[in-house]
Design a protein around this nucleic acid. Structure first.
Lengths: 238, 238
DNA sequence: CGAACAGTTGAGCTTGATCAAGATGAGTGG
DNA sequence: CCACTCATCTTGATCAAGCTCAACTGTTCG
């Protein structure tokens, strides 16, 4: 792991409104630049950080998609999320000064390294940043509530439908198509995230194709009937 | 809901080391007292806050046990956690200024009301408090990772075993028995949390009794063989 | 080019859900 | 204090969603 490091600035980053607070005073904006120490490239399949590693920094994703996963004592994995441009990872490490999950790049990626003590220092002075850090953590908590609802109460079709809608919605917010997406993860990784086996993911996708809800070619997915997909998720518990 | 309010101080609260940072300077300690605005009593079955309600404060539980739950659009509930003395609830409300879940008292309870703007203000000045807030939020994220692992990859027996061990461990940290506990929640609520139906919870408990792992009388549970229970959780995925 | 990886599909099985009937206990009002 | 009621819990019988195992196909990349 040779961290290719480049000095950069948030103030003219095109992802700024995704990962930084908006409406800052110019003076504060310049201070925010101090947060990002370096950038770091992570190749496909490499980890950005891993379970047990010392926590030092949060990471803002510039390009690429990551998965985070936790591992139980007996070696079972659970994917806890897929993260893309503008999203912040590493929050798990704050509480015990060590990371408790792995972050693995699903494709070649680049992140901004933001040393956490610098974040804390600056957010004591820049109220908007303080607020922003709190919101990012709260957002993650709320997201995980949603995943718990999905895992605890939804059936396979509902889970996969919710997953696809969530992905495409986040991609759309980043300027991509509302109806087409490329899965950067395997069926097995999707299954791990959704609490399903890879065969079930594959079968359920095939069923969606049969029902004219999506078109699938490998990892290319086109949402043909978004309404049907949405109805699948909101279907009253029958 | 008539909030019986009493002015109080953290500095001489016996739960302080559970919900506040330790090792504070006396001066900072006195400032911490400013955080708790009031206390509030919540009767059994009443909500401390509910989905959609304006977020203003975090709450430190003094007595009683709460459940938090989210509700999906089609009305399905998912219990996202059970919280007890010293634990902080309300973090979900920070991101959008509104709560996204309900907090319901499972027995008569009392909480310390901590206005969040006051927390933010003070944590700009007291570094230990700032750190503490970050840790509380990170801890919740890590806890939820654990729940995702449980919901996504464990079987019914493993889930229930993990649940009982977690409960008794937290109670033990509060000075209660290592082997006896009183469930403050119904089988249905346990089931919701664990992604199981109440019948499955009941049956699995009965099986534990048969196997000499626990003794159950209503909501009284005595852990007879903690090792067996632990082995159930760590059992290699067979 | 071939080996490892990723995905699909089928057959059969297991776990936990569903439906149903009682049992038990706590709270309430007469 | 007792009878009644409602909520909670237990247990049985049956069913189905999703898992497991297996075979095969397609893809990627070294």
């Amino acid at each position: 792991m040779t961290p290719e490091t480049i000095k950069v600035a948030c103030s003219n980053c095109n992802l700024r409104e995704l990962c930084m607070p908006v409406g800052l005073q110019p003076a504060d904006l310049r201070r925010i630049d101090e947060i990002v120490a370096t950038r770091r490239k992570v190749k496909r399949r490499e980890t950005l950080f891993h379970n047990g590693e010392r926590f030092t920094s949060l990471y803002a994703i510039r390009t690429g998609v990551f998965k985070t996963r936790v591992t139980s004592e007996d070696g079972r994995d659970q994917v806890t999320g897929f993260q893309m441009a503008g999203e912040i990872i590493g929050l798990d490490g704050i509480v015990n000064d060590h990371h408790t999950c792995d972050a693995v790049a699903l494709e070649d990626a680049e992140v901004c390294v933001m040393p956490f003590d610098r974040i804390e220092e600056l957010s004591r002075e820049v109220t908007a940043l303080q607020r922003h850090v709190h919101q990012i953590m709260s957002r993650e908590i709320v997201r995980e509530h949603g995943v718990m609802l999905l895992l605890g109460s939804m059936r396979a079709e509902e889970r996969l439908a919710a997953f696809l809608l969530n992905l495409v919605q986040r991609l759309h917010a980043r300027g991509f198509s509302q109806s087409e997406l490329v899965l950067r993860m395997t069926r097995e990784e999707i299954g791990s995230y959704l609490g399903l086996k890879l065969e079930t993911v594959s079968r359920t996708l095939s069923k969606f194709v049969e029902d004219g809800i999506v078109a699938v070619q490998q990892r290319h997915v086109r949402i043909v009937d978004a309404d049907k997909l949405r109805r699948l998720v909101n279907a009253p518990a029958c």
